[in-house]
């Protein structure tokens, strides 16, 4: 059994989210799942009159994902959390904690990946 989702791609996701905002949907949350060694799955969940809509985005581990926090301010917290736990880097975060929302300064690895990736040094 799996939930009904709308597939999205890296270059279309922000556009889809803008559409959801135009429909006055409420942003619920994002969920990251570590699929295998190379890919992470992101689920964007919206709610409109108690009905949920999901967008599913599968990304390779080392790609950057465009942030939706400029559209929905509420997304900044969950995007920072995913950055902490799964090492997914979001571009254009409104409030960027730089992967240090929960983690210590010294933390090197992202704890929630089944196959941990080592955090790269910032350029």
């Amino acid at each position: 059994m799996s939930i009904e989702t709308i597939p999205a791609a890296l270059d279309t996701i922000v556009g889809e989210v803008v559409k959801m905002k135009a429909q006055e949907a409420r942003f619920l949350t994002m969920t990251a799942v570590s699929l295998d060694e190379k890919t992470t799955e992101l689920l964007y969940t919206f709610d409109q009159d108690l009905v949920m809509t999901h967008y599913r985005l599968t990304v390779p581990k080392d790609t950057h994902v465009p942030s939706i926090s400029p559209v929905y301010f509420a997304a900044f917290l969950v995007e920072n959390e995913i950055c902490d736990q799964f090492g997914v880097v979001f571009d254009g975060l409104v409030l960027d904690f730089g992967g240090k929302l929960y983690l210590d300064e010294e933390a090197q690895r992202t704890p929630f990946c089944k196959f941990a990736v080592t955090r790269k040094e910032k350029a």
Partner: peptide
């Protein structure tokens, strides 16, 4: 495989900041 918990306060922090 995964349990993701989104608690209400997590959702209420952005409104608080606003």
């Amino acid at each position: 495989d995964r349990v993701r918990i989104r608690t209400p306060t997590f959702a209420n922090i952005p409104p608080l900041a606003a």
